[in-house]
Structures are given as structure tokens and as C-alpha cells.
Amino acid sequence: MNAASVGATRDELEDFLYAEAALLDAWRLDEWLALFVEGARYFIPPAGAEDDADPSTSLFYVADDYHRLCERVKRLKKRTAHAEFPRSRCRRLVSNVRVVEGDAARFTLTSNFVTWRSKLGVTDTFFGHHLYEMTRVDGALRILSKKTFLDQDDIRDQGKVSIIP
């Protein structure tokens, strides 16, 4: 399985993920949300979860339907999202981009990440991997669902996942 087998190139897939990370780094959350198709889902399973973790049997940190995902973005832009006001500074590194399975119409994409979040003199590190269900809309790559796995043992240090890691 590689980029070619889903009708893409590695450059195209990497560029998409780098651009996504750049939007989040710049807190351009509406544009980030536009990378998702309507009806998309967004998940953060508990730290250390396996890839097959299921929000109906396991207590996730985030399990958003599309409405709640849109509201999450709206909320994060408000002054009253206190944990993110003033906004934290973040920087994301993305690598190890791989196509896992699927075809051109729908495929699973994975990447590894490190995200640093800094606010009020405290810097938190989140590391892990993303699993995307991808599709194309009018030729452009779009996200059907995104799962962010935090590969640390727990989040004792970070305490919260108030950003989109």
C-alpha cells in the first residue's frame, strides 16, 4: 500500500498534512474545519489507547459528531474558552506519513506528530499518531474522520487537551 495505490503522490499527501498543521499552528480554525467533509467525525481516545479503541466502550477525551466539532471550533475562538484565552502558542511537527489501506475513493492515512503547547510559562508536549479516513471532493483531499492517538502513558503533565493536537 502506498500513495500511488490510492491515486495520490506522497508529496500531495504530505503537503495536505503540513498545510493542516500550519492552519492549526496559526489558529486558523475555520479553515482547518473546512478540510473536513460535512458529517465528519473527530476523536481523541484516552492516552495510550490502541488503534481499535471505540468511544462506545472506552472513555475518550473527545468523540465529536460534526455538530460538536463545529461547536468546538466556535468555542475555541471565544474569550470564554478560558483554558485557551489568551491563546496558547503551538507548533506541530508531522512525519512518517503512510497510506494504510483503502482505494482512491476512501483510504486510511496515518502520520506521527509532536505538538508543543506553551502558555503562561508552561510548555506541554503531546506526541502520538493520527489516523485519518480520507476521501476526495471535486478532486481535493478531504477528511471523513480524524483520530488523534496520544501515545504517552497518561496526561498527568498536560492535564487537559484544550487544543486540537
Binding site: 462506545s56 472513555l59 477525551y61 473527545v62 459528531d65 483554558a83 496526561i155
Partner: peptide, 28 residues
């Protein structure tokens, strides 16, 4: 199963490290 789903959906809406409320409590 339906009630369990609603319960967990409710839970995450407000509670926990990724909820719409708990992170703001921790911040306060």
C-alpha cells in the same frame, strides 16, 4: 446501547480533559 451512547456523549460534552467545561475549571 442507545442510552449508553447518549450518556457518554453527554459526559464528554462537559467533563474530562477534552470536555467543554473541565479544562476551564482546571485553568481557573
Amino acid at each position: 446501547a442507545r442510552m449508553r451512547e447518549l450518556r457518554l456523549f453527554n459526559f464528554l460534552e462537559f467533563l474530562g480533559p477534552g470536555g467543554f467545561a473541565t479544562p476551564d475549571d482546571c485553568e481557573a
